[in-house]
């Protein structure tokens, strides 16, 4: 069993809602609600869900970029307090974030060398060491040495994403948080970036938290997957079981709504929209849209259960066939 790199238990992210004359905090919006999972070295865990399900908030909270309100966080077995600057600095060195849009995540006024140098300077590496690291990383992401003196606008989308990946890799992190890394790219270059990430994982043993809304991409790259809906994990387990034999109706609906290439299998429509209703705060959040909804689903709280190595939050899990 590989080492456990990251462990979250009951992670909760709450954003304050301000208002009134004095701009006081009046209420909280819970974006992530009691999420627990662990990530092992060399593993790819995908977080999937529609917009507003809290997947990006969770990634941000791990880096202290969103308020970590409740829950425990441990990093390589050591408990960390994400609200303390000292601990956060340690985490930020070893956990790196790659953003969605390589057009806005790279400073247009800095050369690639400067972009890659920043993380190393911040960690007080000396120049010689830093250059050596940069050159190795460039090689790893498949870019030429002569790109160092060029600027982001001289590169295409796929190449820019390679630069963004290189920036995340220069500090030899143990975890990469990939926030929708391929959704701004064209399909014909998407595979290049996915293959690069997979190759890096095999070479360096880095763990990936892969945030995406594209189920097909998730199926290709991940080992495990967590399906989120309105801040809660609905289903979590290995990709082979969760995405091929979903237990939760939401997972099934998500999979079935993708338009495939075969017109004999048209996408099935899931009625309604993601909408938080405080009425369902303690019962099943998906109940208003669920076709299998029964009276028990809205009257009682639904705990995360496990069976067949899968965790799911549903009273009436689906049978093992799609």
């Amino acid at each position: 069993m590989p080492t456990e790199a990251l462990k979250l238990s009951q992670a909760t992210v709450r954003y304050p809602i301000r208002g009134g004359v004095l701009d006081k905090t009046q209420d909280f919006f819970t974006a992530v609600d009691g999420v627990s999972f662990s990530l092992h070295q060399g593993e790819v865990l995908a977080l999937v869900g529609e917009s507003g399900c809290g997947k990006s908030s969770l990634a941000k909270a791990i880096l202290g970029l969103a308020p970590w309100s409740l829950g425990d966080f441990s990093f390589f077995g050591k408990p960390m307090n994400l609200n303390s600057k000292k601990d956060l600095k340690k985490v930020r060195e070893k956990v790196q974030l790659i953003f969605q849009d390589p057009y806005s995540s790279l400073n247009p006024r800095q050369s690639i060398l400067e972009i890659l140098m920043h993380p190393l300077v911040a960690r007080s590496y000396n120049k010689v060491e830093a250059l050596e690291k940069i050159k190795n990383t460039l090689h790893l992401v498949g870019l030429n040495q002569d790109s160092l003196n060029r600027f982001p606008h001289e590169f295409s989308g796929g190449q820019r994403q390679r630069i963004a990946i290189a920036r995340a890799l220069v500090l030899s992190p143990s975890i990469l948080l990939c926030d929708e890394v391929t959704s701004a790219l064209d399909v014909s270059v998407q595979a290049q970036v996915l293959q690069l990430l997979d190759e890096i994982r095999n070479k360096t043993g880095v763990a990936l938290l892969f945030i995406s809304h594209d189920m097909q991409v998730v199926k290709a790259i991940s080992d495990r997957v967590a399906v989120m809906y309105l801040g809660k994990i609905m289903e979590m387990g290995s990709v082979d079981t969760v995405l091929h034999h979903p237990k939760h109706p939401y997972t099934k609906a998500l999979l079935e709504s993708i338009p495939g290439l075969d017109p004999n299998f048209p996408p099935k429509i899931l009625e309604g929209e993601t909408h938080f209703n405080s009425k369902h705060k303690d019962s099943c959040l998906f109940a208003p849209r669920c076709v299998y909804c029964r009276s028990e689903c809205v009257s009682q709280s639904i705990p995360l259960q496990s069976a067949d190595g899968v965790q799911f939050r549903c009273l009436f899990p689906l049978e093992r066939s799609l």
């Binding site: 399909v187 097909q216 199926k219």
Partner: peptide, 11 residues
């Protein structure tokens, strides 16, 4: 286009 097969080599 990813077709839901396992492994990035499938794309």
């Amino acid at each position: 286009i990813p077709r839901g097969e396992r492994g990035v080599q499938s794309i």
